[in-house]
């Protein structure tokens, strides 16, 4: 019997603290099972520069907070079969969106102009620092999302439940105790 093609898995890190990725690594020995079934084709913990084509499943951590995130999100959607909002920031905006009650320019001025350090050029895209969006939004407000894994971070059991369902080609169904935000 010919060996079944491995699933092409990607994880993406947008506006978040990488806690979801840490929790992902906490899958521990289950990572070995995962590696047998899937190839990690793009991830902050893998060395790939560009988001590859024909990805089967992409887990997206973090909210959409700047122009780069927006662009990457669109690329992810175009090149993945299934996109999963991975963790509270991607699902709700969470901590990343706490800045939404403030004006972006005020925020930048306070942090960079009034505080110590070099002076950047505000929120205008200057090609070096990606411009901030006026408001941080959850992933599904920018691209269609297929499944949601809440949690800050989602604990490894939650991640495993979701990922193993995806590997088996089934829809993600989290039990009630795995659906809590926070």
């Amino acid at each position: 019997m010919a060996k079944k093609d491995k699933i092409r898995l990607a994880t993406v890190w947008l506006g978040g603290c990488s806690g979801c990725h840490m929790s992902f690594l906490d899958l521990d020995e289950r990572l070995i099972d995962l590696a047998e079934q899937a190839d990690l084709v793009f991830s902050p913990i893998a060395d790939a520069k560009a988001f590859p084509p024909d990805v089967d499943v992409t887990l997206v951590e973090g909210a959409v907070a700047n122009i780069d995130h927006l662009e990457l999100a669109k690329q992810v959607r175009a090149q993945s079969k299934i996109v999963v909002s991975f963790g509270d920031c991607a699902v709700t905006g969470n901590v990343t969106s706490l800045r939404n009650r403030l004006d972006v320019d005020d925020l930048l001025n306070r942090v960079y102009q009034e505080g110590p350090g070099r002076t950047p050029t505000g929120s205008d895209p200057d090609g070096i620092v990606p411009a901030l969006l006026r408001r941080v939004v959850p992933l599904h407000q920018v691209i269609p999302v297929d499944a949601y894994i809440p949690g800050c971070p989602p604990d490894p059991d939650r991640i495993w439940t979701a990922v193993s369902a995806l590997l088996a080609g089934e829809p993600v169904r989290l039990e009630e105790e795995m659906r809590y935000f926070g």
Binding site: I67, L70, K74, N100, L133, R134, R135, V137, V142
Partner: peptide, 11 residues
């Protein structure tokens, strides 16, 4: 388009 106000002023 990416530059759309929709994202700049997402809300």
């Amino acid at each position: 388009p990416l530059t759309s106000d929709r994202f700049a002023l997402a809300t």
